[in-house]
Amino acid sequence: MTAAVVRRLLQAVMVMLAMTVIVFIAINVIGDPVDILISPDADQIERARVVQALGLDLPLWQQYLRFLWAALHGDLGESYVYNEPAIRVILERLPATLELAVAAILIAIVVGVPLGLYAGLRPDGILTRVIMTVSILGFSLPTFWVGLVLIMFFGVQLGWLPSGGRGQTAELFGVQWAFLTKDGLAHLILPAVNLALFDACLILRLTRAGVAEVLPLDFVKFARAKGLKETRVIGVHVSKNIMIPVVTIIGLEFGSIVAFSVVTESVFSWPGMGKLIIDSINVLDRPIITAYLMATVAFFVIINLVVDLTYTALDPRVRLQGEGP
């Protein structure tokens, strides 16, 4: 087990390294930040001074090595805009995105799994047809549009919920969280629901497909033949067998939500990482973009590791390499 985890971590480091190369080159292609950073009236000498201060006069490979060396020391550069270490700017925004993502995934699971189970157990029910139709809408409608509709309906027309921002926050473990205050929670609901919609539908459909697949299998019939209560047959025998694809999707989608909640955060002006990255791309704030992408990759790697470990807990036939039988 330990050997397997260590091997996975080494793989993760290689992935991160490959990522730095891609990110670094890509970012140099998309534009020259100097044009944006320096006021148009600045003279040539001033311009050269800034270019040199940022190290942009060096050949690309030297810039890369300098970046890599600094990155190894935990320094991903200083934001051109905020004049703060990029990693700190990102981490400041991380809790907002994280709580939004966690809330969204929780909503998706709480809605998706039970409805999927219901639809799988009653494939011909009228309610099942309603659920399945709505779920198609759920992942066909564009997120930004649904977000706008939510704002219009609940924010503007009914006036029940605030339509943007993060509201009041409270401190926990030295970090500001919105979900701890009533106001913050109210602000959290709409963006979380908006973000959850797609994944709830995805989880729902996966669960339903899993139930339909597992239900006719002999072991379910045998479980019934043993005289088990239906709650145990479904709750243990069926559920545990359908959880593997569901866990995979939850893991992947959690990463996606954290990394790319750009749209929802923009629509609801949620001050998270997604909004930050869009702003930073607009002003070509290279260190922020780089740090953001690195953080995202690291996040995905961690999630994948957790998902793999969860598999072994769910399915004894899946064993990580390096572990004895």
């Binding site: 072991f219 045998f222 033949a225 005289g227 545990k240």
Partner: peptide, 25 residues
């Protein structure tokens, strides 16, 4: 019927590879 199954009457299936739940001990 549930109370009878497994207690007073039992059934054994054809394929032992499929009869036991693969993810439970």
């Amino acid at each position: 019927m549930r109370a009878l199954r497994g207690r007073r009457m039992a059934m054994i299936f054809q394929d032992p590879m499929m009869t036991l739940n693969p993810v439970l001990r």
